[in-house]
Design a protein around this nucleic acid. Structure first.
Lengths: 133, 133
DNA sequence: CCGTATCCGCCTTGATACTG
DNA sequence: CAGTATCAAGGCGGATACGG
């Protein structure tokens, strides 16, 4: 019932991410978490319905997507627009704040994707070290 | 013995982060994981030794820091420099690739930190909705 | 000082079933 | 379609002890 379990970290103390009790650490984890980032990334391309999102983010379960969306909505990054029709239609889209965050996140994602061959090469070097030496 | 448990995701397929089997998803998780991001952030300020890092990143255990560093080193984001002295001294620092990634990550972190009051306000609104009526 | 090895509890996750 | 409820399983992460 409590959306996403907040623990000890969420008290109001100075905003130093490195400190255990920093409130922004929680939000950061929602954003960078396993599904949060991919969800924001998907929504950056435009408004999406629940099951569209589910199909787009490969591997996410209904439950996790639901939890993720609630957390992001609560943090003010995602806006939920429900139409009381039948069948129901619910659209999710980024808020202005969400767009800002998503853009920086995508910059990171693209950076990693673009340098992926470097990463793969580094891995082979690393693994080679331990195998032969 | 296998550093950081790689699962099904790590095959060589097209680099579409949204796909379950995308190799960059793994690296992205190392970078944005609970401790990966904070570790990169700390190292962005300069080279650090193991225990300096451990003190800097509040709440990380030896085991998790060790795992995190290995994953980042394997991905070519962090360089490990061991001096065979006694007592041993090991310095960790970002590689050029690591610096690039860390900068984008920090941009994200600072964005979230800077807008934290918006987030907190959004949360109060959200929680208020569910409390009353 | 710099880690690795082992144990173990708990939370996250995923599957399934169900509701509006 | 758009979710919530429930439950079992296992991996993640912490604590501890030990090794180089």
């Amino acid at each position: 019932m409590d959306i996403t379990q907040e623990r000890t970290e969420d008290r109001n103390l100075p905003f130093d991410v490195f400190a255990r009790a920093c409130p922004s650490r929680g939000t950061l984890e929602h954003v960078t978490g396993r599904w949060g980032g991919l969800t924001l990334g998907a929504l950056h391309e435009g408004s999406l319905r629940f099951n569209e999102l589910r199909r787009r983010v490969d591997g996410v379960s209904e439950k996790m997507l639901s939890q993720t969306l609630h957390a992001l909505e609560r943090d003010g990054l995602v806006h939920r627009e429900a139409q009381p029709t039948n069948p129901p239609r619910v659209d999710y889209e980024l808020t202005p704040l969400g767009r800002e965050v998503a853009e920086r996140l995508l910059s990171l994602i693209h950076c990693v994707e673009g340098r992926m061959d470097d990463v793969l090469a580094a891995r082979e070097r690393y693994d080679g070290m331990r195998g032969t030496f």
